[in-house]
Amino acid sequence: MPSETPQAEVGPTGCPHRSGPHSAKGSLEKGSPEDKEAKEPLWIRPDAPSRCTWQLGRPASESPHHHTAPAKSPKILPDILKKIGDTPMVRINKIGKKFGLKCELLAKCEFFNAGGSVKDRISLRMIEDAERDGTLKPGDTIIEPTSGNTGIGLALAAAVRGYRCIIVMPEKMSSEKVDVLRALGAEIVRTPTNARFDSPESHVGVAWRLKNEIPNSHILDQYRNASNPLAHYDTTADEILQQCDGKLDMLVASVGTGGTITGIARKLKEKCPGCRIIGVDPEGSILAEPEELNQTEQTTYEVEGIGYDFIPTVLDRTVVDKWFKSNDEEAFTFARMLIAQEGLLCGGSAGSTVAVAVKAAQELQEGQRCVVILPDSVRNYMTKFLSDRWMLQKGFLKEEDLTEKKPWWWHLRVQELGLSAPLTVLPTITCGHTIEILREKGFDQAPVVDEAGVILGMVTLGNMLSSLLAGKVQPSDQVGKVIYKQFKQIRLTDTLGRLSHILEMDHFALVV
């Protein structure tokens, strides 16, 4: 994948999101292997301009796509893939009243899908469409860049269908997702969380590099694949309309690839034109409109599966009536509230959605109805927002919020430890010299600072030695090549209790 991002070429006709291997024109390309080798690009942008032909009021008969309808489940399912879809609609009884809503608040519980998330729908649909058009064949390999849930859905379907599955996901995604993927037989590649989507090191860039190296491999490409919004247009939206008897006044959905909100909203605009569509985008993402909503100094966020630093091709923002931004604290607070007060075992993005819903639905009156999409299960986040310690460490809970008995030293300040200034190293000294210094002084790690004293990161003896043994660096290389740029900081005025929580999850903390 090139470091400079080429513009994806656009073909003359058809839909841009065809499933299957992508040609340089962004659509299915038939021909000899030699032709494909000559024409197939190194990668295709996940934010390529959409060429979708959908228009409100256009006859369904003019759609270029294969459409399906929700099917009634048999008493005995032939395999677990038949437990994807037909998820329950559940009334939220307490939270709406707590925040003064007059309307009825309903939750579409997508964590009841077989793999635990709304992404099971698009995973199965992308595979079925690729099999139907002859792209996927027995023994082929599926590769997908994902925040985890699409990966789980694909790995689940691949396990049943017999495909090899490789999932490329950023490091910030939970260990629970990784464990589930491994249990399903998927191979996992992790990428830096802070890598831009168009960087060769991003999950998108690495996935395309693997595709170019592995024979008979395919990126189904949830960011561009029409099967993504079509899955929701054909099934999720129809289920909502049936469950609500066609009567709903507002739908609120958090947005990642945009397939969920695009597919549902398009069908609702056709069948229930008075329904307002509300999009939820986390602070630090750029999906919301108008652009002024996205202006923030924050560039990272903890909530998973929603928000991006690019506009995915499948996201149709014209069908969203209003956007709201959400933050991590309210997302996790509301997710825990949904679990504790409503018994809905949902993930953090569901918290984002409901946090926005109780604001947006203030305009609705008694007798009206708001539906929220709860995308995934708490299963993926047992060591994250479900953990009091994690919430404390991230600053989303305060010590006084917890009532468990603490040891005698818990409320003492870090400054009472009488710490001395640490050994520091410059980023320009060599790895070999740094190892000598650390061994001589008896230290395992040291902060790396520039000549102005600005902290650049941390270097550890173990990481340097393993990097040297693996051949990633040489003793003569500058130590700046092996620094940890993500590390926890703590102030002298913070409590030892807070430091204790940090050290339970990290090997060190830097006192500043």
Rank of each mutant, 00 (worst) to 15 (best):
G148H: 00
E176W: 00
E104Q: 14
A157H: 04
A265V: 13
D249H: 06
D198N: 15
C103E: 04
S3Q: 09
A71Y: 11
D120F: 05
G11D: 04
A69G: 13
I95V: 10
L106W: 14
G185V: 03
S19F: 09
Y233I: 00
I188D: 04
S254C: 15
A38R: 09
Q222M: 01
G96Q: 04
V180S: 09
S175Y: 13
P6Y: 10
A24T: 15
R125I: 03
M126D: 06
L268E: 00
T236D: 03
R276W: 13
P74S: 12
V189Q: 07
L251C: 07
K247V: 04
R18F: 08
T150C: 01
S254M: 04
L241Q: 05
I44Y: 11
L105C: 05
D221G: 08
E110D: 06
K267R: 08
T150D: 04
G259M: 00
E187Q: 09
D120I: 05
R182A: 04
P70F: 05
K172F: 01
R125L: 07
L124F: 15
I261L: 07
L101R: 00
H22E: 12
T260R: 06
T135E: 03
V252I: 14
K30H: 09
G96R: 15
T68Y: 06
E176C: 02
R45W: 08
I219L: 10
K108M: 01
Y163V: 00
G14T: 10
L56D: 13
F112H: 00
V180Y: 02
I167P: 07
A71K: 10
G20A: 14
F112L: 06
A183M: 07
R266H: 10
A157D: 10
T235Y: 14
I264K: 05
K75N: 10
K25D: 11
N225H: 03
D249G: 12
I188M: 07
W208Y: 14
E176M: 03
K25H: 10
T191S: 02
C165W: 02
I166D: 04
E176F: 01
I219D: 01
H203G: 01
P46E: 03
T235H: 02
I92V: 14
N225E: 00
T53D: 05
G148E: 01
T150H: 04
E176H: 02
P138Q: 07
V90G: 04
A24L: 14
R125A: 10
V204Y: 10
E4Y: 15
D238T: 11
P33E: 11
H17Q: 13
P59A: 03
L241M: 14
P229H: 01
C109E: 00
M89C: 08
R91D: 08
P74W: 04
R209A: 09
L105G: 01
D198I: 05
P41N: 09
T262A: 15
L42N: 03
P49K: 09
A155Q: 04
K30E: 11
G116N: 07
I264W: 00
L101S: 00
G246C: 02
N228Q: 03
P70A: 14
L184H: 02
N228G: 02
D238H: 09
P59R: 03
Y163C: 00
T236L: 09
L101G: 01
L220W: 00
H22P: 02
A8L: 14
D238P: 11
K172Q: 07
G246T: 11
H218K: 06
L81C: 07
S63Y: 04
R161P: 07
G26R: 10
R125W: 12
P41Y: 09
A159H: 06
L56C: 09
D238K: 10
A237D: 07
N216I: 05
V255C: 12
S73N: 13
C52L: 03
A231M: 08
S175C: 09
P229L: 07
G258S: 01
I167K: 08
P74E: 11
S117W: 03
E239H: 05
A107F: 02
H218E: 03
V118D: 03
D234Q: 06
L230E: 08
S23M: 10
A114C: 04
I214Q: 04
G139E: 01
V10C: 11
